[in-house]
Amino acid sequence: MRNNPTGRQLRLGTELRKLRERAGLTSTQASKLLGVQQNQISNVEAGRAGVSPERVRALACHYDCGDKALVEALSDMATERTRGWWEEYREILPAVLLDLAEVEHHSTMLRTAVTVHIPGLFQTTDYAREIFRQDVPEMSPPDVEHRVSFRVKRQAVLYRDSPTPQHAIIHEAALRMQFGGRSVTGAQLKHLLDMTERPHVTVHVIPFDAGAFPGSGQSIYYAQGPLPPLDTVNLDQSHGPVFLDSEAQLDKYRVLLDRMEATSLPPAQSRDFIHKVIQDL
């Protein structure tokens, strides 16, 4: 029995519960169909107990789920039992940050929209350090360094053999905010400019003169799964990341990101814009 299930384990349980409820079955009815105790179904759906790919397929059959692609994707989630690099931070950082790294690791594409900070996967160590120094309550120097090293290790998804495509929408305000002063900001913007040259990275800039646009009041981080129903939205709050995965929420943030991208400059013009901001420093 797991005392602290990961975000991925919780998500698998949530999706199995959705399938059961869609079939109109109670957990007691599901347990009888599978020939197990009712608490076993409850523990699987709560992420407290593991489940084999074979049992996932059996549950999907009992739940009359005809979406073969979804069933196989959920079976793959049940198969995945590797402990990622983020586990070394298990007793150091909040578990929700480890869940974020796990979501990124398994994502097929990442979309982000920011209005104040440069996206985390593009941040330099000095820039990230300055961001974390502004947290309330103030973090100790060792805690700041743990956060910085964790953020840098998360960036590995952009450098591995099959890098995860990253689509970022960045408001001009985020480009002009001088965290750490001109030197740190200048190095950060040059690094961002270098990242735009990578084939799997797409950056769109929303200039001040674009005016109002949907989603302007928040930062959005959208991680695509193997199928749209398995996507995840992360909203970065002052108390930590918040994950959303209901169908209505996913639809809403897909539309928001699409509209924000439609408001922004195309990639080539965005690179020119970033270069201009660097010259203005």
Rank of each mutant, 00 (worst) to 15 (best):
R55M: 15
C65K: 09
M109G: 05
E54H: 09
R129L: 03
R129N: 06
D135P: 00
T115S: 10
D64I: 11
T124K: 01
M77V: 03
T82L: 10
P141G: 04
P137T: 05
P141L: 07
V116D: 09
H105R: 14
D126S: 13
C61H: 15
D126L: 11
D64K: 15
P94D: 10
P137G: 05
L100K: 05
G66A: 12
C65R: 12
F132G: 02
S107I: 00
E88P: 00
T82P: 00
H105V: 08
A78Q: 07
C61P: 00
A101P: 10
W85C: 07
S107E: 02
T125S: 13
L121D: 01
H117I: 10
E80G: 01
I92W: 01
D135K: 13
D143S: 12
W86F: 07
R111D: 03
P141V: 08
P137M: 03
I92L: 14
V136N: 10
A113H: 13
I118T: 09
E54F: 09
Y127D: 03
F122M: 13
H106D: 11
A58L: 15
E130L: 00
Y63I: 03
C61M: 14
D67F: 04
R133L: 12
R81Q: 14
P141H: 06
V71A: 08
R133M: 12
R129S: 11
G66Q: 15
T115M: 05
L59W: 15
M77H: 03
L93V: 11
E130V: 07
R90M: 08
A101K: 11
K68P: 03
A69K: 14
T79R: 15
G66K: 15
T108S: 11
H117E: 11
L70F: 08
A60V: 05
L100F: 09
D67C: 05
D135Y: 13
D143G: 04
Q123E: 09
E88S: 09
